[in-house]
Design a protein around this nucleic acid. Structure first.
Length: 282
DNA sequence: CGTTCAACCTGGGCGC
DNA sequence: TGCGCCCAGGTTGAAC
């Protein structure tokens, strides 16, 4: 579930590793398959002794930048966590970067219950070829209003489905797509090419607002409790959800029951009263 | 080119 | 109490 706010919270949570030198890297004591760690561990030896110069974010990935130009990319997908403290359980610990000094122990850990995520090591050239060539769209918090609607020009897909396409726009996932469309008052099935300029204004504005507010609350920890901050704390934004996972519960604005539909194999939640239908259907 | 969909996984919740 | 089933969503890549 980690989307932009959760991954940004992870990024901020490990920012204190900047300036540290890598002592060693390795998979954790458990003998599980080397899921999601590439390349093979012996090729990671080149990072030992390198200093960490920055911790960045590309869409839903945390990027640890080394003085050599190499980058370690942590992609949590559904259940991955980047941690500076003990993980929720030891059995799904996947990877460890030891940053200890003689005076102060410190380990950067990657934990992933379902193992759909990954940790990758890339040179700066590999990183540029993978993430800076249009395969990942502009960040949802960096894009201007003008560029925003331009990314969806000529698109006939429903706005909810299009918002999830990371090549158009990076960072919005299933949860925040439903939330931002509720706040914008836009029905999730509205085709992109059927949206007015005023609606694009509102979607862009509410997208920024919901992402920034969720970051302030350190992300959303759902009922399964998987998502945690880098210090293994729950987020707080789940208490502010207006529609996500609230099917049949009353809308907090109008009291109408929230509806759940499926779009592109994923749940969409919306209020049929507050979110106006596409004009074609009116 | 657009779009649909299975696959990758584990564990929580549900019905029986 | 326990078993089997479904579901959760991010991304990739194959199929249509």
């Amino acid at each position: 579930m980690p989307e932009l706010p959760e991954v940004e919270t992870m990024r901020r949570g490990i920012a204190s590793i900047v300036g540290r030198k890598i002592v060693s890297v390795g998979r954790l004591p458990c003998e599980r398959r080397p899921i999601g760690v590439t390349p093979e561990l012996d090729r990671w030896r080149r990072v030992v002794g390198c200093v960490i110069t920055a911790v960045e974010r590309v869409g839903k990935r945390v990027v640890v930048v080394l003085a050599s130009g190499d980058r370690m990319i942590f992609e949590p997908r559904m259940t991955g966590l980047v941690l500076l403290v003990d993980p929720p359980t030891t059995d799904h610990l996947r990877f460890c970067v030891d940053l200890s000094t003689p005076r102060q122990p410190l380990q950067l850990l990657y934990w992933d219950r379902r193992g759909l995520g990954s940790v990758r090591l890339m040179t700066d050239a590999e990183f540029a070829a993978t993430f800076l060539t249009g395969k990942v769209g502009p960040d949802a918090l960096a894009i201007s209003r003008r560029d925003f609607s331009g990314r969806f020009a000529g698109c006939r897909q429903p706005i909810k489905v299009a918002l999830l396409d990371q090549r158009r726009l990076a960072g919005v996932g299933n949860l925040y797509a439903s939330e931002l469309l509720f706040l914008a008052g836009v029905h999730p099935t509205t085709p992109c090419d059927g949206l007015t300029a005023e609606q694009w204004d509102e979607i862009h504005r509410r997208m920024r607002k919901v992402l920034l507010t969720a970051i302030r609350h350190e992300g959303s920890t759902l009922s399964d409790g998987t998502y945690r901050t880098a210090l293994n704390q729950a987020g707080g934004y789940q208490n502010h959800h207006r529609v996500y996972d609230r099917a049949a519960l009353p809308c907090s604005t109008c009291g109408q029951p929230i509806e759940r539909i499926v779009q592109a194999q994923r749940s969409t939640f919306f209020c049929p009263q507050c979110q106006s239908l596409p004009r074609e259907e009116n």
